[in-house]
Amino acid sequence: MHLPPINALRTFEAAARHGSFKKAAEGLHMTPSAVSHQIKALEELLGTALFRRATRKVHLTDTGRAYLPAVREALELLREATERITAKPDKAVLNISAAPSFAVGWLMPRLSAFQVAHPEIETRLSAQIEMVDFADSDIDLAIRHTAKVDTPGLVAHRLMEEELIPVASPELLARQPLRNQDDLAKVQLIHAVPRMGRWRSWLRAMGADKVDAESGPKFDHDAMAVQAALSGMGVAIVNRGLVEKQLADGTLVAPFPHDLHSDLAFWLVYPRQREADPSIQAFRAWLFEQVGQTAAGATDLQDA
Rank of each mutant, 00 (worst) to 15 (best):
L60T: 08
L60H: 10
T61G: 11
T61A: 12
G64H: 11
P69E: 10
A70Q: 06
A70N: 03
V71M: 10
R72Y: 01
E73F: 07
A74C: 09
A74G: 14
L77F: 12
R79V: 07
R79T: 10
R79Q: 15
T82C: 06
E83G: 07
R84L: 12
I85E: 15
K88C: 04
K88W: 04
P89K: 13
D90H: 08
K91Q: 15
K91L: 15
L94R: 01
S97I: 10
S97R: 05
S97W: 03
A98T: 09
A98M: 09
A98D: 08
A98E: 08
A99P: 00
P100D: 07
F102R: 05
M108L: 15
P109T: 05
P109R: 07
P109A: 07
L111G: 08
A117S: 13
H118I: 01
E122Q: 02
Q128R: 13
I129E: 12
E130I: 05
M131S: 14
D136W: 03
L141A: 01
L141E: 00
A142S: 14
A142P: 01
T146Y: 01
K148C: 05
V149I: 15
D150E: 14
P152I: 01
G153A: 08
A156Q: 04
A156Y: 02
L159R: 07
V167K: 13
P170V: 06
